[in-house]
Design a protein around this nucleic acid. Sequence first.
DNA 1: CCAAAAGTGTTGCTCGTACACCCATGA
DNA 2: TCATGGGTGTACGAGCAACACTTTTGG
Lengths: 257, 257
Amino acid sequence: VIDNEKRIMTPGSLAGQRGTKRSPTMDVSPDSGDPLVKPMPRVDVRVVLFTVDAGRLFVAFDEQPNCRALPRRCPEQAESLDTAGTRILIDHVGIAERYLEQLYSISHTHTSEGQWTVTYLALALACDGAPLLDPAVWAHARNLPEMNPVDRKIIDYALLRLRPKLGYTTIAFHLLPPSFSLSELQIVYEAVLGQEIDKRNFRRKIPAAGVLEATGITRREGSHRPARLYRFRAGHDAETYLTPGWAFDSEQEAANS
Amino acid sequence: VIDNEKRIMTPGSLAGQRGTKRSPTMDVSPDSGDPLVKPMPRVDVRVVLFTVDAGRLFVAFDEQPNCRALPRRCPEQAESLDTAGTRILIDHVGIAERYLEQLYSISHTHTSEGQWTVTYLALALACDGAPLLDPAVWAHARNLPEMNPVDRKIIDYALLRLRPKLGYTTIAFHLLPPSFSLSELQIVYEAVLGQEIDKRNFRRKIPAAGVLEATGITRREGSHRPARLYRFRAGHDAETYLTPGWAFDSEQEAANS
DNA sequence: CCAAAAGTGTTGCTCGTACACCCATGA
DNA sequence: TCATGGGTGTACGAGCAACACTTTTGG
């Protein structure tokens, strides 16, 4: 079982399932290797979880009171990295992410903590049930609190990777409910990019990409013209871009020397 | 000390030093943490080393006879990931790379080997001294030998990442000697991309990027017009793109909780 | 009728791509 | 003089950025 770097982008929002596609099996095979185990550096996994609410981008911190640190965890033996990422979010933030992507592995020898850290980027939906916008958990990405500089760098890097992905993937879907207006989509883009977008260019370019589908429904909410709602097409063929085929079945995997 | 994902791209070829920029300090600080160490999964590091020779792209394998596997190693405790990558190449291939970049960390639980693997992409110069094109070490990237499927996937992914980088970085420099003709540069691009490039477009676009500098020297080699030689400008400002600032001094690092 | 958000087209520029011939040299 | 690789310019189309007004609704 091998982690996927980037998952299928078909929006889980459509059918209700999560967008994060996992490997089919998650079983734990006993380590059939030699008994002499050299001491290995300790490893932790840290996750940068973003969400967008009211046009603002938020980052999740560990839910321990006033703990201004990224949710993290030392994965257990035989736990996959991806699984660790998901469990971190459930255990330390109380959120199930909709998108999870590994970012980078760093080795830092000056800390007393784990020497190696595997970092993840995750996306979740703001109003998806969980206790959101709890100021003990969520911090505005444009105004991050005091925190250790390693976590700060990891957040900066996560944003650096997330932003250009808006342009060539459909990753923004994971920050939106199953149906949405073009204005809502634009607000998500603006929140992540941190800058305004021209409305007319946006409304020409996004539908031209062919990943949207009109629901036919309009939503009235206020003293103005109602908005047409859209959803993401199930079969859109984007996202082969730079996506590795980290998919093995067990037999192939067992052939690894 | 934290690994850099992507290094400064100014070609080491210019001044003779390696293009791979390392963190300033590499010291090993004792693990001052708690004594109870949970058993951690084993980790290995594997490197995909490319070079170009005679217009063909080659991948290095472990130099053990007929060992069709990527050079790998289980890093020692307190060894940084980058350092492990470099040492793998020196110890198992006998080559010092000119560029080293971390790719991705995978967790595979079905193998008897290390459960986690950190993968690296490296570039080296073909005719730079070392025993090159030794068929026991180098395999043509377009015609890879039988090998375990995990390593095969890692190579595929390395190439998938390397190719687009030619377009927006100066990474190709690390596959060329300090001075070179535009034709030689084009041959490197074609070898990596696996497809031909229009000569006129290439010769308009590359100089327009502003990273080249004419040496004023021409090279005569054959019964045809001599070629102008170029080098890469020392101060070209590219390569801030997507490059994280994984640079910490020790004091900041120590502040990590 | 007013406020407020939804919705809509055109123009100019830049960049990428396609394409064919002359130049300088050594043998 | 010929074979060989070095070197050059133009024209078309795609895609992006800039820019302002009309429409529909609720109050």
